[in-house]
């Protein structure tokens, strides 16, 4: 469990030169359970920039998963606006949402969520099937995506023939294959052992560095938070931290962020974990 967390000298991120991939403003999400109103997100505003690799962190019940579902257009906010890749997606119908998910978003889940009866290749092709691509192009792109995550030799294996790390690589290939504007990863290392988890995070970092892919990782794991360009902390449905950790990442104008007298901010999270 999360306990006292002390953040040291947070740097508020304000100035970017690039157009944000994500801009949400005053987003609120209410749930009604058993007649009680529960506010999962309370007036959240956030920008995510192209090429950033950020972590959304917080204890369970903090609203990080809700924020993820709203960013992923898997759910709609109660109020507030959401621009994704320059488009207002706050008020799309179901069909349009599906289209945006297909074209602009890639998902990586904690438990992989691969379809068990499909080969790795077919799993990766799936978003392209819904994107109405032809069979030949689908297969070519899926093959490339699997090669990019180091699974060029396991194209025709089914998920039950792959290790956990390999499954997650397939899932990452599936998230990348449609050239999304942003990849959303929900506890991507949650079902993996430490070493494999580190490999997966390394892969994310590599893809981010080499291909400039915007990656948002939802996690409660501070070790993962350390490796991110930025950490957005949530608590009780509100953003409590928004901390830039590294200066060198792709989308940020370095000169804007090289504040006088400041060294790169050390990882500011101190965590006590029980159990």
């Amino acid at each position: 469990m999360y306990h006292d967390t002390e953040y040291l000298t947070p740097v508020e991120v304000t100035d970017y030169v690039t157009e944000p991939v994500v801009r949400i403003e005053h987003v609120t999400k209410d749930f009604v359970t058993g007649g009680n109103l529960f506010r999962a997100l309370d007036d959240v505003s956030l920008e995510i920039h192209r090429g950033e690799m950020i972590a959304i962190m917080g204890p369970s019940g903090s609203g990080k998963s809700t924020l993820m579902t709203i960013l992923g257009l898997l759910d709609v906010p109660t109020s507030g606006t959401y621009w994704l890749d320059g488009q207002d997606v706050s008020a799309l119908n179901r069909g349009q949402q599906a289209r945006v998910r297909n074209q602009k978003l890639g998902f990586v889940f904690q438990n992989f969520n691969l379809l068990p009866r499909l080969s790795a290749l077919k799993n990766v092709e799936l978003p392209l099937v819904y994107g109405r691509l032809g069979a030949r192009e689908r297969e070519e792109r899926a093959r490339q995506a699997l090669e990019a995550v180091g699974l060029g030799a396991r194209l025709h294996n089914r998920p039950n023939e792959l290790s956990g790390g390999q499954k997650q690589r397939v899932a990452i290939a599936r998230a990348l294959v449609g050239n999304p504007a942003m990849v959303l990863a929900d506890e991507p290392t949650g079902a993996l052992d430490t070493r494999t988890g580190a490999e997966i995070m390394g892969l994310f970092r590599q893809l981010n560095r080499e291909q400039g892919i915007t990656i948002v990782v939802v996690t409660h794991d501070p070790e993962i938070g350390k490796q991110m360009d930025r950490v957005v902390g949530l608590r009780d449905g509100r953003i409590t931290e928004n901390i830039l950790q590294e200066y060198y990442h792709v989308g940020v104008a370095t000169e804007e962020l090289e504040l006088p007298g400041r060294d790169p901010v050390p990882v500011p999270v101190q965590v006590e974990q029980q159990g």
């Binding site: 992923g72 179901r94 297909n102 889940f109 799936l126 978003p127 449609g178």
Partner: peptide, 12 residues
């Protein structure tokens, strides 16, 4: 749910 997340429409 997975198919929808990957972009399957209601019609699909």
């Amino acid at each position: 749910g997975v198919r929808k997340a990957l972009g399957a429409t209601d019609g699909d």
